[in-house]
């Protein structure tokens, strides 16, 4: 493996580290806020009710964050974690682009396309 590849792999590792820490910190912040207000309230998960509509869309989650909702902030952290996956595939593509590996640039681009499709359109 070339030195360039090694360095780029490390760069991907670093971006993943930053992303995962940012996501975990956001999730934790939302969790602390939620527990601060509802820590002693009993929780029930035996029956599936489905999350309220505001926690099912990006705009809805953003609205909750603006109201300072702990649950909204947790969702942002989780969305961040998923976004990191898109960034990771994108960076892998750039890695192959820089090492002039056409086959893998094509493969990674298709993977990115399929991932984006599945994430935003599947099941609509």
């Amino acid at each position: 493996m070339t030195l360039v590849m090694r360095r780029l792999e490390r760069l991907i590792g670093f971006v993943l580290l930053v992303g995962v820490l940012l996501s975990a910190a956001t999730v934790l912040l939302g969790g602390v806020l939620f527990l601060w207000r509802h820590g002693s309230t009993p929780v029930h998960y035996r029956i599936f009710r489905g999350e309220p509509s505001d926690l099912r869309t990006l705009l809805g989650v953003w609205g909750d964050v603006m109201k300072g909702s702990g649950r909204g902030i947790i969702q942002v952290g989780l969305i961040l974690l998923v976004a990191v996956q898109l960034v990771r595939v994108l960076l892998t593509g750039i890695l192959f682009l820089l090492s002039r590996d056409k086959t893998f640039v094509v493969i990674t681009t298709v993977v990115l396309g399929l991932l984006t499709y599945a994430l935003f359109y599947a099941g609509r």
Partner: peptide, 16 residues
Amino acid sequence: AASVGIYFRHGYIDPF
């Protein structure tokens, strides 16, 4: 991550 979208839109992902 590819399947998160569908779970999210169907309200399966409970924040807490």
